[in-house]
Amino acid sequence: MNAPEPAIDTRSALTLYGEALPSRMLIGTAQYPSPHVLAEAVRASGAGIVTVSLRREQARGRTGERFLELIEALGVRVLPNTAGCHTVKEAITTAQMAREVFGTDWLKLEVIANDDTLQPEVFGLVEAAKALAADGFKVLPYTTEDLSVADKLLAAGCKVLMPWGAPIGTGRGLANPYALKSLRAYYPDVPLIIDAGIGAPSHAAQAMEMGFDGVLLNTAVAKAGEPVRMAQAFAQAVDAGRIAFEAGLMGVRDMAQPSTPVAGTPFFDLKRGP
């Protein structure tokens, strides 16, 4: 009997800022129907990183403390964001506040240009990334697929880039696969995570098949009919896409080509048609 093939451990391979992570999926913690569903969905996703934020605390409020206790019980790395920041100054101050409260120098850096599209404000993003990286932050910037911006973010000290698939919360998948493919090809050795716009497990699988190192999503799970099951579906899609990338996809052809052998086809000698 043949020994079983060792399973490909696709989930141990992602390393960000020198840290090996248990999954190629990163998940957001917002918009779940309840704290319990949030916790179960994060567990089901297998994600090793969850995104979190900072918001105003009321007098005598306990909201923040309760949330932090819930997240700490999950035993995952937290990745604070600077969601809602529109200027370099706001982003830097928020980052410094997050580092103190969450006790981590990892940061999902967002500088937002426009409230309707939630388009990254790439000029401010580069400036903030430079200042924060110099201050010791491990910056994971939410950016576009633009190569020149990517270059500047890397020069600023970012070791990971997080290009958007589509605008945050739209669920449209990869809006510009051609440009994302270029980005992937141009930076074969930089960890690239598709952040935002992922609406379905097939979108996540597509990103992984293209060779992206991971996906970060939130709404697609949180707003699913059953978030915990959707988290499982995404985990499987991310694994499937990664294994497919590693296995090597066939090339696309314009013309049909039979997969069944042509040689030995019966009735070849019979005249067809009327």
Partner: peptide, 10 residues
């Protein structure tokens, strides 16, 4: 003055 605490985030 801003006094902030941890919250859900995407």
């Amino acid at each position: 003055i801003e006094i902030l605490s941890p919250r859900h985030g995407g």
